[in-house]
Design a protein around this nucleic acid. Structure first.
Length: 430
RNA sequence: UCCGACAUAGCUCAGUGGUAGAGCAGCCGGCUGUUAACCGGCUGGUCGCAGGUUCGAGUCCUGCUGUCGGAGCCA
């Protein structure tokens, strides 16, 4: 008999089949027992009745420990009351009897759970989050590929800071001195668009900042997209179409996971392009009305991001920040050179910034001066400046943080739960 | 780096200067439809570490360590 995945169990109604997985819970009531089984594709309840199976099998069902692995044979039936399938167990083949499982059925603290992250990943909510993360990744590839972007991998070991702002992880690189772990692939994919037109990268990036908030990791996955001949307004359209497609994909493919997460899907159903737009100056004015003490030239703080979204049901682009608080490579607004042609995309429901993007400076001399103004080593940026010497074109791009996007869509307040093995300022294990 | 909170059983927590507690997990028993099942019993403690106040400290004070939350920075 061929084994069946639990996700396919409906096709086997009233037939005998085999499920291979783990016992994540069990309940016994005298001469009848219930084994909760998961196999990675889903969950099903196995019903064990003493009088219907050999005594040794009944003993095994009683003795089996939580998280033991087993191959279980039975007949697929419908639950007498609920609208779910069950397995009337006829045979249990133990694969391995698990030792006492550290993660109990009651609540645990975050430190304990993170120490046991390798086991915590099996819990239903953690399972659901990773399934949704997978959908987000695939939806990103699918949508970008179908709109003319190809994936280009950017390097992880880099010779200098990409933006010159954040703290980088440093390491010795043979006889060439210091190397750094990439904090963004953006500058490299700017080179690649001059070959391919539209490209994106997707990989881990590293920030050595000592951030201690629910929105920060020292290692996280970023998707950067870059497109030639795309200016500021079109850049925003690409972003809102991508985010809409991702949310639509999750709603289509992950209803069971969203239910496990107890995620209210009504706010997600409203996520359809176009999103809201507001200049930084308008955002500051609105925040002042709402009681924030934000200054004219300030970036939005975490509280401001939540405050400004409180009456909005779709993401908001906050565009045209004061150039002096933004990165050197951003192009200035021709209508007001004090402003950058950039935008941050804020998610609703208090989940904050999920995308940062901008039109890039494409003039050689202007860019050279910006690098000098920011006290960055010009030599390290020779190659980047070259792109403005040989067929420079207007171009724009943006980057999303996969964990922040996943956190918003899953309704998970702390992004440490959205990456399989989080790397935090004080956590490198497991 | 700064601000705030917390640290008691394997886990989650209560304990308000006077004998160390509960739920879960584990072990034993009961229960034929359980849903974090339930019911009865048993086992389980260097109260983070170091010092101090007191007749007496899990409880009050000081320092240290660790954790959590937040700020800054950003995805």
């Amino acid at each position: 008999m061929k084994p069946t995945f639990i996700s396919e169990i409906a096709h086997h109604l009233d037939k005998r089949t085999i499920v291979r997985g783990w016992v994540y819970n069990k309940r016994f009531s005298g001469k009848i027992g219930f084994l909760q089984i998961r196999d990675g594709t889903g969950f099903i309840q196995g019903v064990v009745v003493q009088k219907d199976i050999p005594e040794a099998m009944w003993e095994l069902a009683n003795k089996i420990t939580l998280e033991s692995s087993a191959i279980i044979e039975g007949t697929v039936t419908k639950h007498p009351r609920n609208d779910v399938y069950e397995l009337q167990v006829s045979n249990i083949k133990l694969v391995q009897m698990a030792e006492e499982y550290p993660i109990g059925k009651k609540e645990h603290g975050p430190d304990f759970l993170l120490d046991n992250r390798h086991l915590w990943l099996r819990s239903s909510k953690q399972w659901a989050i990773q399934r949704i993360r997978n959908t987000i990744i695939n939806a990103t590839y699918e949508h970008l590929n179908s709109t003319g972007f190809i994936k280009i991998d950017s390097p992880i070991l880099t010779p200098a800071a990409c933006e010159g702002t954040t703290t980088l992880f440093e390491l010795e690189y043979f006889d060439l001195g210091k190397a750094y772990l990439s904090q963004s692939g953006q500058l490299y994919i700017e080179a690649a668009i001059m070959s391919h037109g539209r490209v994106f990268d997707f990989g881990p990036v590293f920030r050595a900042e000592k951030s201690k908030t629910r929105r920060h990791l020292t290692e996280f996955w970023m998707m950067d997209a870059e497109a030639a001949f795309v200016e500021h307004d079109e850049n925003l359209k690409i972003q809102e179409n991508l985010v809409s497609f991702i949310v639509e994909s999750v709603l289509k493919k992950n209803q069971a996971e969203l239910k496990i997460l107890e995620r209210d899907i009504k706010p997600l159903e409203k996520i359809k392009a176009p999103f809201y737009r507001m200049t930084h100056a308008e955002a500051v004015a609105k925040l002042h009305k709402l009681g924030s003490d934000i200054k004219e030239d300030d970036d939005l703080g975490g509280d401001d991001e939540t405050l400004i979204m409180q009456d909005l049901d779709k993401p908001l682009f906050v565009e045209k920040y004061p150039a002096k608080v933004k990165a050197f490579y951003m192009k200035r607004d021709p209508a007001n050179p004090e402003l950058a042609l950039c935008a941050d995309l804020l998610a609703p429901e208090g989940f904050g910034e999920i995308i940062g993007g901008s039109q890039r400076e494409d003039d050689y001399n202007v860019l050279l001066n910006r690098i000098k103004e920011h006290n960055l080593p010009v030599k390290a940026f020779d190659w980047y400046l070259d792109l403005r010497k040989y067929g420079s074109v207007p171009h724009s791009g943006f980057g999303y943080g996969l964990e922040r996007l996943t956190g918003w869509i899953c309704g998970t307040p702390h992004i440490r739960e959205t990456i399989p093995f989080p790397r935090l300022i004080n956590r490198l294990y497991p």
